[in-house]
Every structure is written in C-alpha cells, then in structure tokens.
C-alpha cells in the first residue's frame, strides 16, 4: 500500500508537469496562430508533434508506475 500511494503521488506530479508543458505549448501556438493566421496549419503540426513528445514523458511514467505495481 505504501509503495502504491508513493507511485500515485509521483504520477500526479508528472501529470502536473506534463499538463503545464502541453498547456504552454498549446497557448503559445494559439498566440502564434493569432499573430500569423496564414501559417496556422504549420504551427498546428509543430504543436501536435511537440505535445506528442511531451506526452511521451507522461506515458513513460505510467509504464514505470505500472511496473512498480
């Protein structure tokens, strides 16, 4: 039970971090789209790639947490 709660806290922390990361990425991308609507499709692609790579960190954390129990 001890280790389970610790992994849960760790997962929570990582999700906060990833949430901030993806939130900032999306926020900045939207700002950029507002400034330059003509290249918004390029910005969107770059944003999705960046968000997917940040999300990867959270997924690694989930896998480690699953392996821990």
């Amino acid at each position: 039970m001890e280790s389970l709660s610790l992994t849960s806290i760790g997962l929570g922390l990582i999700i906060i971090g990833v949430g901030i990361g993806i939130g900032r990425t999306a926020g900045s991308a939207m700002e950029a789209m507002g400034r330059q609507p003509e290249i918004s499709s390029k910005i969107q692609t770059a944003m999705i790639i960046a968000a997917a790579l940040i999300e990867g960190v959270a997924l690694f954390a989930i896998v480690v947490a699953m392996m821990k129990g």
């Binding site: 997917a52 790579l53 999300e55 990867g56 997924l59 690694f60 989930i62 896998v63």
Partner: peptide, 9 residues
C-alpha cells in the same frame, strides 16, 4: 517505443 506506448495507453 514511445509510439507503441502512446497508442496503447
């Protein structure tokens, strides 16, 4: 590996 985990998760 990240591709694999991302889709599955």
């Amino acid at each position: 590996f990240a591709l694999m985990i991302r889709l599955m998760a």
